[in-house]
Design a protein around this nucleic acid. Structure first.
Lengths: 240, 240
DNA sequence: GAGTGGTCTAGACCACCGT
DNA sequence: CGGTGGTCTAGACCACTCC
């Protein structure tokens, strides 16, 4: 009756190891017990331990060396661009107090470019949101987001106090991935006023399309970041 | 006697599925046979099929929906910043002919900042390389790379005709990951001359540290990219 | 309820690293 | 050589989606 599903064993082992890394029981460079011992300790199969470790390797917390052991890596960037789709979270992780000013919320027919990016038929509508995101009250990002009206459903014209990602998730479209194109640009008059920087100041323009669990595009965004607002970090890896 | 190790079954299944996606036997949106059928077809266990599929989900080629099936996604960006550590490859993938001009190769003691980033002791030396990377003969990137002399070993003062990544791999330090910090900047006089753009033109500055399989930092780089040189794409994903 | 992917096990053998 | 991670299997049961 009471909801609450049991987390998987893999996830339990992962969480426990993550805690040991987080609270200093395991330090960077430390060697983990071997997989058989860990399986014993957690009373699970070796396969289960391996999956937990694998997920921590992917997220950059551990590295494995065949024939040698598993080791704790130097902590990866938690607020990296590649592993986080929410700027609110990134601003907070950077140690700043996130805030925002909504400039405009508008429901209108999609442009040709939007229809292409969001795979919409002609005449379909989008909800367009224009915002200034702030960190410690300083303007950091000017953003224009467009979400198909169909995707939001009933939640269409509600308040935007929560993040757009929360709204999308509530509408049954959890965002799990996005493709971003990054481009350095100069602030024109309008951007310089919105972001309170000089005209010609360097900005980072990011054009992004977010996708949900079904790989359906659910939001298109254009953002302009103030240069030194917060570090934009990308974790890179060699192709498989 | 003849070397050639057999690729793992997982990798064989992965490769076969990738080919079917690549040559159009499987198109975006298509549903794959279920895991039991695939296991049958490839004469492997379901677990093996699952691992192959999992790796294609991570690389963005497939998406799984519990209770429904596994589907081919729209092709992910193959020359994305997050899944490729070589710019030569990225320039080539962007459809341009890569070229380079080496401005300087120098062996010198590491600076304090370099020693910190590369975890070097005092007095240790680095090999510093300054280059202009080109696409179709047009300057795209000005880069300064520093590699600890110890890491290169004998290959230290060889020619640089191959990529630095190839040199590192030959020296037993295959680069498998990197952390990059991106920052929009304006071209100063020197950069404008090197990259043949106007002074004050927007550039993307990337500071990067590459790591090998043992999570050891093996190269520190600073790069300045011409704004519209080629698209800088980042695939983003929600945290685990 | 039928079909699908998600989790988990116990056991086996292989490949690589260091001594 | 012993210890480690890497691969693979056969089978079981669970949870979700859709009809």
């Amino acid at each position: 009756m009471s909801g609450g599903r049991r987390p998987s064993l893999v996830s339990q082992v992962r969480t426990e190891l993550l805690q040991e890394i987080g609270d200093g029981r395991l330090l960077a460079g430390d060697k983990l017990p071997n997989e058989y011992e860990l399986a014993d300790r957690f009373a699970v199969s070796r396969q289960t331990v391996r999956e937990a470790i694998q997920s921590l390797v992917v997220s950059g917390h551990l590295s494995r060396q065949r024939g040698t052991g598993t080791f704790v890596t130097t902590a990866p960037s938690r607020h990296a661009l590649d592993t986080n789709v929410s700027y609110t979270a990134m601003i907070r992780d950077a140690g700043l107090e996130p805030g925002e000013t909504v400039l405009e919320v508008l429901r209108r027919p999609a442009s040709a470019a939007e229809a292409r990016a969001l795979r919409l038929g002609s005449g379909q509508e989008v909800v367009a949101v224009e915002r200034i995101r702030r960190g410690n009250d300083r303007p950091l990002i000017y953003s224009r987001d467009r979400i198909p009206a169909d995707v939001l459903g009933d939640a269409g014209q509600e308040r935007l106090s929560d993040s757009l990602y929360a709204m999308l998730e509530a509408a049954g479209h959890r965002v799990v991935g996005a493709t971003a194109r990054l481009l350095p640009v100069l602030a024109d008059r309008r951007l310089s006023e919105l972001l309170q920087v000089g005209e010609g100041a360097p900005l980072l323009h990011i054009h992004q399309v977010d996708r949900d669990t079904d790989d359906v595009p659910v939001m298109e965004s254009d953002e302009w970041h103030v240069a030194d607002a917060f570090d934009v970090i990308v974790n890179r890896r060699a192709p498989l």
